[in-house]
Simulated assay, not measured.
Amino acid sequence: MELYLPIAELPMNVFMLLGMGAAVGFLSGMFGVGGGFLLTPLLIFSGIPPAVAVATVSSQIVASSTSGALSYFRKRAVDVKLGGFLLVSGVIGSYLGVKAFTRLRELGQLDLVIAICYVTFLSTIGGLMLTEALRAIAAQRSGRPLPVKRPGGRTWMQRLPLKVRFSRSKLTISAIPVVLLGIAIGFLGALLGIGGGFIMVPALIYLLKVPTGIVIGTTLMQTLGSMAFATVAQAATNQTVDVVLGLCLMIGGVVGAQFGAEVGQKLRGETLRALLGLLVLSVGIRFAVDLVLTPADVYSISFMSGEQL
Protein backbone atom coordinates (compact mmCIF):
# COMPACT_ATOMS: atom_id res chain seq x y z
CA MET A 1 0.00 0.00 0.00
CA GLU A 2 1.74 3.15 -1.26
CA LEU A 3 1.53 6.41 0.68
CA TYR A 4 2.68 9.67 -0.89
CA LEU A 5 4.88 11.82 1.34
CA PRO A 6 4.19 15.45 0.35
CA ILE A 7 7.40 17.02 1.67
CA ALA A 8 9.75 14.17 0.75
CA GLU A 9 7.96 14.14 -2.65
CA LEU A 10 8.02 10.39 -3.12
CA PRO A 11 5.71 7.41 -2.50
CA MET A 12 6.62 4.93 0.24
CA ASN A 13 5.03 1.72 1.39
CA VAL A 14 3.05 2.55 4.53
CA PHE A 15 3.83 -0.83 6.11
CA MET A 16 7.55 -0.25 5.57
CA LEU A 17 7.29 3.11 7.32
CA LEU A 18 5.36 1.59 10.22
CA GLY A 19 7.91 -1.22 10.33
CA MET A 20 10.84 1.22 10.48
CA GLY A 21 9.16 3.12 13.30
CA ALA A 22 8.42 -0.12 15.14
CA ALA A 23 11.98 -1.41 14.65
CA VAL A 24 13.57 1.75 16.02
CA GLY A 25 10.94 1.90 18.78
CA PHE A 26 11.80 -1.70 19.68
CA LEU A 27 15.51 -0.85 19.86
CA SER A 28 14.75 2.30 21.87
CA GLY A 29 12.69 0.33 24.36
CA MET A 30 15.30 -2.43 24.59
CA PHE A 31 18.38 -0.22 24.95
CA GLY A 32 16.80 2.81 26.67
CA VAL A 33 17.90 5.33 24.02
CA GLY A 34 15.94 7.92 22.03
CA GLY A 35 16.61 6.26 18.69
CA GLY A 36 16.99 9.45 16.62
CA PHE A 37 20.60 8.58 15.77
CA LEU A 38 19.32 5.27 14.34
CA LEU A 39 16.07 6.43 12.74
CA THR A 40 17.60 9.31 10.76
CA PRO A 41 20.20 7.08 9.01
CA LEU A 42 17.55 4.41 8.37
CA LEU A 43 15.32 6.94 6.60
CA ILE A 44 18.26 8.24 4.54
CA PHE A 45 19.21 4.69 3.51
CA SER A 46 15.56 4.16 2.45
CA GLY A 47 15.70 7.07 0.00
CA ILE A 48 14.25 9.91 2.10
CA PRO A 49 16.19 13.15 1.42
CA PRO A 50 18.56 13.84 4.37
CA ALA A 51 17.05 17.30 4.97
CA VAL A 52 13.55 15.81 5.33
CA ALA A 53 14.81 12.87 7.43
CA VAL A 54 16.57 15.13 9.95
CA ALA A 55 13.67 17.57 10.35
CA THR A 56 10.96 14.90 10.52
CA VAL A 57 12.79 12.78 13.08
CA SER A 58 12.92 15.89 15.28
CA SER A 59 9.12 15.83 15.44
CA GLN A 60 9.15 12.12 16.23
CA ILE A 61 11.62 12.72 19.08
CA VAL A 62 9.30 15.37 20.54
CA ALA A 63 6.42 12.91 20.60
CA SER A 64 8.45 10.11 22.18
CA SER A 65 10.06 12.44 24.75
CA THR A 66 6.74 13.91 25.92
CA SER A 67 5.37 10.77 27.56
CA GLY A 68 8.73 9.96 29.15
CA ALA A 69 9.19 13.48 30.52
CA LEU A 70 5.68 13.51 32.01
CA SER A 71 6.31 10.15 33.65
CA TYR A 72 9.52 11.39 35.31
CA PHE A 73 7.79 14.63 36.38
CA ARG A 74 5.15 12.58 38.19
CA LYS A 75 7.90 10.62 39.93
CA ARG A 76 9.62 13.88 40.92
CA ALA A 77 12.77 12.63 39.20
CA VAL A 78 13.50 15.87 37.32
CA ASP A 79 15.73 18.75 38.40
CA VAL A 80 13.54 21.51 36.97
CA LYS A 81 16.09 24.27 37.56
CA LEU A 82 18.93 22.34 35.91
CA GLY A 83 16.55 21.24 33.14
CA GLY A 84 15.56 24.89 32.64
CA PHE A 85 19.19 25.94 32.13
CA LEU A 86 19.73 23.08 29.69
CA LEU A 87 16.43 23.78 27.90
CA VAL A 88 17.08 27.51 27.34
CA SER A 89 20.64 26.89 26.19
CA GLY A 90 19.39 23.97 24.09
CA VAL A 91 16.93 26.27 22.31
CA ILE A 92 19.81 28.64 21.53
CA GLY A 93 21.81 25.70 20.18
CA SER A 94 18.82 24.54 18.13
CA TYR A 95 18.48 28.02 16.63
CA LEU A 96 22.15 27.98 15.62
CA GLY A 97 21.75 24.42 14.30
CA VAL A 98 18.79 25.39 12.11
CA LYS A 99 20.78 28.38 10.78
CA ALA A 100 23.73 26.10 9.95
CA PHE A 101 21.31 23.57 8.41
CA THR A 102 19.79 26.27 6.17
CA ARG A 103 23.16 27.64 5.09
CA LEU A 104 24.62 24.22 4.30
CA ARG A 105 21.49 23.39 2.32
CA GLU A 106 21.87 26.58 0.29
CA LEU A 107 25.50 25.67 -0.44
CA GLY A 108 24.54 22.13 -1.46
CA GLN A 109 26.77 20.59 1.23
CA LEU A 110 24.13 19.46 3.75
CA ASP A 111 24.09 15.78 2.74
CA LEU A 112 27.88 15.53 2.90
CA VAL A 113 28.13 17.23 6.31
CA ILE A 114 25.38 15.02 7.78
CA ALA A 115 27.11 11.88 6.49
CA ILE A 116 30.54 12.91 7.81
CA CYS A 117 29.10 13.83 11.23
CA TYR A 118 27.30 10.50 11.51
CA VAL A 119 30.42 8.56 10.49
CA THR A 120 32.46 10.40 13.14
CA PHE A 121 29.95 10.23 16.00
CA LEU A 122 28.56 6.74 15.46
CA SER A 123 31.91 5.08 14.73
CA THR A 124 33.53 6.64 17.80
CA ILE A 125 30.67 6.05 20.23
CA GLY A 126 29.87 2.58 18.88
CA GLY A 127 33.51 1.51 19.04
CA LEU A 128 33.92 2.74 22.63
CA MET A 129 30.67 1.09 23.77
CA LEU A 130 31.52 -2.22 22.11
CA THR A 131 35.06 -2.27 23.52
CA GLU A 132 33.88 -1.50 27.06
CA ALA A 133 31.12 -4.13 26.90
CA LEU A 134 33.43 -6.84 25.53
CA ARG A 135 35.97 -6.11 28.31
CA ALA A 136 33.20 -6.48 30.89
CA ILE A 137 31.97 -9.76 29.37
CA ALA A 138 35.54 -11.17 29.19
CA ALA A 139 36.21 -10.19 32.82
CA GLN A 140 32.97 -11.79 33.94
CA ARG A 141 33.73 -15.08 32.17
CA SER A 142 37.27 -15.24 33.55
CA GLY A 143 36.00 -14.63 37.07
CA ARG A 144 38.13 -11.54 37.72
CA PRO A 145 36.45 -8.29 38.74
CA LEU A 146 36.66 -5.41 36.29
CA PRO A 147 38.42 -2.36 37.80
CA VAL A 148 35.90 0.35 38.61
CA LYS A 149 36.74 3.66 36.98
CA ARG A 150 35.75 6.43 39.31
CA PRO A 151 35.07 9.86 37.85
CA GLY A 152 37.92 12.32 38.37
CA GLY A 153 37.79 15.38 40.54
CA ARG A 154 36.07 18.60 39.65
CA THR A 155 39.00 20.96 40.41
CA TRP A 156 38.88 22.83 37.12
CA MET A 157 35.08 23.16 37.35
CA GLN A 158 35.25 24.43 40.92
CA ARG A 159 37.40 27.34 39.73
CA LEU A 160 34.83 28.50 37.17
CA PRO A 161 32.71 31.57 38.01
CA LEU A 162 28.90 32.03 37.96
CA LYS A 163 28.13 29.34 40.53
CA VAL A 164 24.51 28.19 40.71
CA ARG A 165 22.85 25.98 43.34
CA PHE A 166 20.74 23.12 41.95
CA SER A 167 18.87 21.95 45.04
CA ARG A 168 17.18 18.90 43.52
CA SER A 169 20.54 17.49 42.38
CA LYS A 170 22.29 18.75 45.54
CA LEU A 171 24.95 20.47 43.45
CA THR A 172 26.58 23.89 43.37
CA ILE A 173 28.40 24.26 40.05
CA SER A 174 29.23 26.89 37.48
CA ALA A 175 26.51 27.63 34.94
CA ILE A 176 29.13 27.83 32.16
CA PRO A 177 29.56 24.06 31.45
CA VAL A 178 25.79 23.55 31.84
CA VAL A 179 25.00 26.20 29.23
CA LEU A 180 27.74 25.04 26.85
CA LEU A 181 26.51 21.45 27.10
CA GLY A 182 22.92 22.51 26.36
CA ILE A 183 23.99 24.60 23.35
CA ALA A 184 26.11 21.76 21.93
CA ILE A 185 23.33 19.16 22.27
CA GLY A 186 20.73 21.54 20.84
CA PHE A 187 22.97 22.35 17.88
CA LEU A 188 23.63 18.69 17.08
CA GLY A 189 19.95 17.82 17.51
CA ALA A 190 18.81 20.41 14.96
CA LEU A 191 21.60 19.67 12.49
CA LEU A 192 21.56 15.85 12.66
CA GLY A 193 18.09 14.92 13.91
CA ILE A 194 19.23 13.34 17.18
CA GLY A 195 17.85 13.87 20.66
CA GLY A 196 21.37 13.76 22.11
CA GLY A 197 20.47 11.65 25.13
CA PHE A 198 23.33 9.21 24.45
CA ILE A 199 25.72 12.17 24.85
CA MET A 200 23.83 14.20 27.48
CA VAL A 201 23.30 11.37 30.00
CA PRO A 202 26.98 10.38 30.44
CA ALA A 203 28.00 14.08 30.38
CA LEU A 204 25.64 14.92 33.24
CA ILE A 205 26.74 11.90 35.26
CA TYR A 206 30.52 12.03 34.77
CA LEU A 207 31.14 15.70 34.02
CA LEU A 208 28.60 17.52 36.19
CA LYS A 209 28.14 14.70 38.76
CA VAL A 210 24.34 14.84 38.61
CA PRO A 211 22.71 11.93 40.54
CA THR A 212 21.77 9.07 38.21
CA GLY A 213 18.15 9.02 39.35
CA ILE A 214 17.67 12.62 38.18
CA VAL A 215 19.60 12.42 34.91
CA ILE A 216 17.15 10.73 32.53
CA GLY A 217 14.12 12.88 33.44
CA THR A 218 16.19 16.09 33.26
CA THR A 219 17.60 15.04 29.88
CA LEU A 220 14.10 14.36 28.55
CA MET A 221 12.99 17.82 29.66
CA GLN A 222 15.85 19.41 27.70
CA THR A 223 15.27 17.17 24.68
CA LEU A 224 11.55 17.95 24.58
CA GLY A 225 12.05 21.72 24.65
CA SER A 226 14.98 22.01 22.25
CA MET A 227 13.63 19.53 19.69
CA ALA A 228 10.17 21.11 19.77
CA PHE A 229 11.79 24.45 18.91
CA ALA A 230 13.92 22.77 16.21
CA THR A 231 10.82 21.15 14.65
CA VAL A 232 8.92 24.45 14.47
CA ALA A 233 11.99 26.28 13.16
CA GLN A 234 12.67 23.64 10.50
CA ALA A 235 9.05 23.73 9.37
CA ALA A 236 8.98 27.54 9.20
CA THR A 237 12.44 28.10 7.74
CA ASN A 238 13.14 25.10 5.52
CA GLN A 239 9.69 23.46 5.07
CA THR A 240 11.29 20.03 5.57
CA VAL A 241 9.02 18.49 8.25
CA ASP A 242 6.89 15.78 6.63
CA VAL A 243 3.85 15.36 8.91
CA VAL A 244 2.63 12.20 7.13
CA LEU A 245 6.03 10.52 7.50
CA GLY A 246 6.33 11.63 11.14
CA LEU A 247 2.88 10.26 12.01
CA CYS A 248 3.69 6.82 10.59
CA LEU A 249 6.98 6.70 12.49
CA MET A 250 5.28 7.74 15.74
CA ILE A 251 2.60 5.04 15.48
CA GLY A 252 5.15 2.32 14.73
CA GLY A 253 7.53 3.58 17.43
CA VAL A 254 4.93 3.50 20.21
CA VAL A 255 4.07 -0.12 19.43
CA GLY A 256 7.67 -1.28 19.02
CA ALA A 257 8.87 0.35 22.24
CA GLN A 258 6.50 -1.75 24.35
CA PHE A 259 7.94 -5.02 23.04
CA GLY A 260 11.52 -3.74 23.19
CA ALA A 261 11.20 -2.83 26.87
CA GLU A 262 10.09 -6.39 27.70
CA VAL A 263 13.02 -7.94 25.82
CA GLY A 264 15.52 -5.48 27.33
CA GLN A 265 14.56 -6.48 30.86
CA LYS A 266 15.55 -10.08 30.14
CA LEU A 267 19.09 -9.32 28.87
CA ARG A 268 22.19 -8.60 30.93
CA GLY A 269 23.57 -5.05 30.97
CA GLU A 270 26.87 -6.05 29.31
CA THR A 271 25.03 -7.86 26.53
CA LEU A 272 22.79 -4.86 25.91
CA ARG A 273 25.76 -2.49 25.69
CA ALA A 274 27.62 -4.83 23.33
CA LEU A 275 24.62 -5.18 21.01
CA LEU A 276 23.96 -1.43 21.01
CA GLY A 277 27.64 -0.67 20.38
CA LEU A 278 27.71 -3.13 17.49
CA LEU A 279 24.54 -1.62 16.03
CA VAL A 280 25.79 1.96 16.30
CA LEU A 281 29.17 1.00 14.83
CA SER A 282 27.48 -0.80 11.91
CA VAL A 283 25.44 2.30 11.01
CA GLY A 284 28.58 4.43 11.12
CA ILE A 285 30.41 1.99 8.83
CA ARG A 286 27.46 2.01 6.41
CA PHE A 287 27.66 5.80 6.17
CA ALA A 288 31.43 5.58 5.60
CA VAL A 289 30.94 3.05 2.78
CA ASP A 290 28.35 5.29 1.12
CA LEU A 291 30.82 8.19 1.22
CA VAL A 292 33.49 6.36 -0.76
CA LEU A 293 31.32 4.36 -3.19
CA THR A 294 30.71 5.81 -6.63
CA PRO A 295 27.01 6.83 -6.87
CA ALA A 296 24.74 5.34 -9.53
CA ASP A 297 24.18 8.84 -10.97
CA VAL A 298 27.59 10.45 -11.29
CA TYR A 299 26.13 13.78 -12.41
CA SER A 300 23.12 15.70 -11.14
CA ILE A 301 21.43 18.92 -12.21
CA SER A 302 20.23 21.46 -9.66
CA PHE A 303 19.13 25.08 -9.76
CA MET A 304 20.84 27.55 -7.46
CA SER A 305 18.73 30.32 -5.97
CA GLY A 306 19.31 33.76 -7.50
CA GLU A 307 20.56 32.38 -10.83
CA GLN A 308 18.73 32.64 -14.12
CA LEU A 309 19.19 30.27 -17.05
Rank of each mutant, 00 (worst) to 15 (best):
N238G: 07
F198A: 12
V232R: 03
A235Y: 00
Q239K: 10
T219C: 11
A233I: 05
A257D: 11
L247V: 15
V255C: 14
P211H: 08
N238Q: 13
K209H: 15
V241C: 02
T237I: 09
G246M: 01
I194C: 08
M200K: 12
I205S: 14
G252H: 05
A203T: 14
P202W: 06
L245S: 02
I205F: 11
G253L: 08
A235I: 00
G197Y: 02
L249W: 08
Q258N: 10
N238A: 13
V254E: 05
L249V: 09
G217H: 10
L207S: 15
G256P: 09
V254I: 15
D242Q: 02
L224V: 03
F198P: 05
I194D: 04
M200T: 13
V254D: 03
L208P: 08
T237M: 03
V255P: 02
V255Q: 05
Q222F: 07
T240N: 00
F229G: 03
A228I: 07
L208N: 08
M250Y: 05
I194V: 15
M200E: 11
I194S: 07
M200N: 09
T237A: 08
V244E: 07
V210G: 09
F229K: 02
C248K: 08
G217K: 11
M221D: 04
P211M: 10
N238M: 11
K209G: 13
G197T: 12
V210L: 10
I199C: 03
T231G: 07
V243I: 15
D242S: 04
T218E: 11
T231Y: 01
G213F: 10
L245D: 05
M227R: 05
L220C: 07
T231S: 11
I205E: 14
L208T: 12
T240Y: 00
I216R: 10
L224D: 04
L207P: 08
G225P: 12
T218Q: 10
T219A: 12
G197Q: 09
T218G: 09
T212L: 14
Q239P: 03
L208Y: 04
A228T: 13
V215P: 03
A257V: 14
F198D: 03
Q239I: 01
L208H: 04
P202K: 13
I214S: 10
D242I: 01
L224S: 02
L249S: 04
I251R: 04
I205Y: 12
V254G: 01
K209R: 15
L245W: 00
T240V: 03
Y206H: 14
L224W: 09
F198T: 15
G252S: 10
T212C: 03
I251T: 14
A233W: 01
G256E: 11
I216T: 12
I205H: 14
A230C: 11
A235D: 01
Q222M: 15
G253K: 03
Q258G: 06
L207I: 14
G246F: 01
P202G: 13
A203K: 06
V244K: 05
T218C: 11
A233R: 01
T237W: 00
L208S: 10
V201F: 04
V244L: 09
K209D: 15
M250A: 13
V210R: 03
Y206V: 07
N238K: 06
V244N: 03
P211Y: 05
